[in-house]
Design a protein around this nucleic acid. Structure first.
Length: 311
RNA sequence: CGCGGGGUGGAGGAGUGGUACCUCGUCAGGCUCAUAAUCUGAAGGCCUCGGUUCGAAUCCGAGCCCCGCAA
């Protein structure tokens, strides 16, 4: 059997290796090189780099619609029997779904029908869920609504970041790929319908119709309790990173942070500060990694040394 | 030449032409049964090259490096 992988995530590697080892991976479809960095450098995705190293044919997309024809051609040319999709970043068009009816397996990082959409991992962290998971499902025209092949539960302990959880889930997803694909192809796995009534979506507060993550949502709302702020910090790591202003940080340190801070006289209180990491303690939140606008990332102790007066 | 911010002892920061300062750390000594506590003292610095000036961390030019923006 020949397979193709559709994906863009930097965590894709375990899945790529699983497919290569067991299912004759013959085509990788990924986002084309993005302009990134300060001098307009083009950086290939990790999927592309891996594919190049492993001599797997690569098909790049940026605007899906223009490439539909070419992609179908490439899939035919490679005699692809089964497509695996994980965190692709594009909506797969109806034509391709029709052409590969029942032959596109999507790996979604939630226990569907909960958290359909683009941000299942962030949603589970933001809502403080104690369990999330992975769903293998067949691609359908409606997003994340296809029949379910298999689900794996994954408990959350409350310290995960989007980064760490993605990494873990990709790994688990890869470990179970052989079992699920063989089961499906062999006919032992019966696809099960989702109950649409149970479907949930986590919409962006700033874009109520979208499940993408927007940087506008990353500003810390200090009226929330420390637990929710902590969830936000973890959900928005590694992007877009929860932030606030120095003024608000000082003002709310009293009842939201584990210690009260006082800024020095000469610091500009309008400056923004990103909170990369924090630990939730019983008296409040205790940041560990922060970054003041225009500066490098520093530890909390260094921040206090430079910007605050000793209490 | 995509846009913007920045480079000050070991760390993080003040300092817009006139003796380089603050918090932390380091070292020595004191106090202490003891200490990450406390006291006294010390070492150590303006990214590089050039320019302006009586005088440059500060102004000008070139270079190197770091950070943010693109979802």
């Amino acid at each position: 059997m020949r397979t193709a992988f559709f994906g863009t995530s930097k965590h894709s590697r375990p899945i790529l290796e699983a497919l290569k080892n067991e299912f004759d991976l013959s085509l990788c479809v990924t986002k084309s090189d993005r302009i990134v960095g300060r001098s307009q450098k083009r950086e290939p995705t990790k999927v592309k780099k891996w594919s190049r190293e492993n001599k797997i044919k690569i098909f790049e997309v940026d605007n899906f619609k223009n490439k539909e024809e070419d992609l179908l051609e490439a899939l035919t040319e490679q005699r692809v029997d089964l497509i695996i999709v994980a965190d692709f970043g594009f909506i797969i068009t109806d034509r391709i779904i029709n052409a590969y009816q029942g032959k596109i397996v999507n790996i979604h990082f939630s226990l569907l029908p909960k958290y359909r959409g683009a941000n299942p991992v962030q949603a589970a962290i933001l809502n403080g869920d104690s369990i999330t998971g992975i769903t293998y499902l067949l691609m359908s025209k409606e997003m994340d609504a296809g029949d379910i092949l298999h689900q794996i539960k994954h408990p959350l302990e409350g310290s995960e970041t989007t980064e760490s959880l993605y990494k873990d889930l990709f790994k688990i997803a890869a470990q179970n790929i052989p079992k699920v694909i063989k089961g499906y192809i062999g006919g032992e796995i019966e696809p099960k319908k989702q109950n649409p009534k149970d479907a949930t979506y986590h919409f962006s507060p700033s874009h109520p119709k979208s499940t993408y993550v927007y940087k506008e949502d990353a500003r810390i709302d200090w009226t929330e309790d420390p637990q929710n702020i902590d969830r936000k910090i973890r959900a928005f790591y590694p992007w877009p990173i929860a932030w606030t202003t120095l003024e608000e940080l000082e003002k709310n340190s009293d009842n939201r942070l584990s210690e009260k801070i006082k800024l020095r006289e000469n610091v500009n209180k309008d400056t923004t500060i990103k909170i990369y990491e924090a630990v939730l303690e019983k008296h409040g939140l205790s940041p560990t990694q922060v970054q003041v606008a225009g500066k490098s990332k520093i530890g909390w102790a260094e921040f206090k040394n430079g910007y605050c007066v000793n209490q």
